[in-house]
Simulated scan of single mutants.
Amino acid sequence: MDTQAREDARRWLAEAGVTQVGDDTWLDGDAPDARLTADDVARSWAGQAFTDERLDRAGQLRLAFGLLDLLDAYWVTCEIRFADQDPSGPLPPGALWDGYRQRLEAPETGDAVTCSLWVDWFEDRKTAATAFAEVLGHDIHRLRNDPSDPLLRRARRVLECSGPVPWPVKETAYGIAAHVPALHPALFRALLGSYHDVHGDLEPQAALDLLSRVALPPDTAHLAQLRAVLAAGHRNHHRDPHAWDAARRPRP
């Protein structure tokens, strides 16, 4: 989280007459009897960040990230993506992905950031490879020699929402994560998501090989079932929903 960007966003809203009066309660001076949630504010104002002509494109993006820090509303990330795909876009890629990386490395980050990666950037085949490389792939090799806490936090969060990323794009990162015990629970959830997500993607044998290198308690929920469906060659839960149920039933 960028504290300065958050406070700049708060001042920007206040200039427009929008002020916070409670934990999740906001007041719009143009409608003093109405109370707004953070999501209401995001839907009304996040898009306006990209029309503020006092700011260049990088400044508009920084303002939008400040609104994200302030409101923790998924809709802000939607407006960021809309602006990137707008005919006047794309947004400055350095500032865009620096913004995501910074929030993924923070000790605390809102669900909006990882939700945005998962359902927008990673599920879209046109953006999945670039997004995954920017938020983790380019830096994954540093985990072998520099497993700093911020990088581990980023890697953990990205892995856990990376199910929709095409297997060839993420396989190397998954393989390196298998060498980092601190990432084993996140890697397991990544493999589980790669199997269960509607848009999940994996190669069964390669995923099974990785799973064999993940150190987890043997009674970890869904571990045995995942091994069974991968060993049977299943690629995705939604291609054969009965396979998971069959793997869950005890053998006679």
Rank of each mutant, 00 (worst) to 15 (best):
A128L: 11
A128V: 13
A129W: 00
T130Q: 14
T130I: 08
A131Y: 07
A131R: 10
A131N: 12
F132I: 11
F132V: 10
A133K: 06
A133Y: 09
E134S: 10
H138E: 13
D139H: 13
I140N: 00
H141Y: 08
H141M: 10
R142I: 00
L143P: 00
N145H: 14
N145S: 15
D146A: 14
P147F: 04
D149E: 15
D149Y: 03
P150A: 13
P150H: 08
L152S: 03
R154Q: 15
R154W: 03
R154P: 02
A155S: 09
A155C: 01
A155V: 01
R157F: 01
R157P: 00
E160G: 01
E160F: 03
C161E: 04
G163N: 13
P164Y: 07
V165E: 09
V165N: 07
P166K: 03
W167F: 15
V169S: 10
E171K: 14
E171G: 01
A173W: 05
G175T: 13
I176S: 04
A177E: 03
A177H: 03
A178F: 08
H179A: 12
V180D: 00
V180T: 11
P181M: 00
A182E: 14
A182S: 10
L183H: 02
L183C: 02
H184W: 00
H184M: 03
P185D: 08
F188K: 01
R189D: 14
R189F: 06
R189L: 12
A190T: 08
L192G: 06
L192T: 00
G193L: 10
H196Q: 12
H196E: 13
D197R: 00
V198I: 12
V198D: 09
H199Y: 12
D201P: 05
D201C: 12
L202T: 11
L202V: 08
E203G: 09
P204K: 05
P204S: 10
P204R: 07
Q205P: 05
Q205H: 12
D209S: 14
D209V: 11
L210N: 06
L210Q: 06
L210D: 01
S212Q: 13
V214C: 08
L216R: 01
P217V: 03
P218M: 06
T220K: 02
T220N: 06
H222T: 06
H222I: 00
H222F: 11
Q225Y: 01
L226F: 09
L226S: 03
L226N: 02
A228S: 15
A228Q: 09
A228C: 04
L230T: 05
A231P: 04
A231S: 15
A232S: 11
A232E: 14
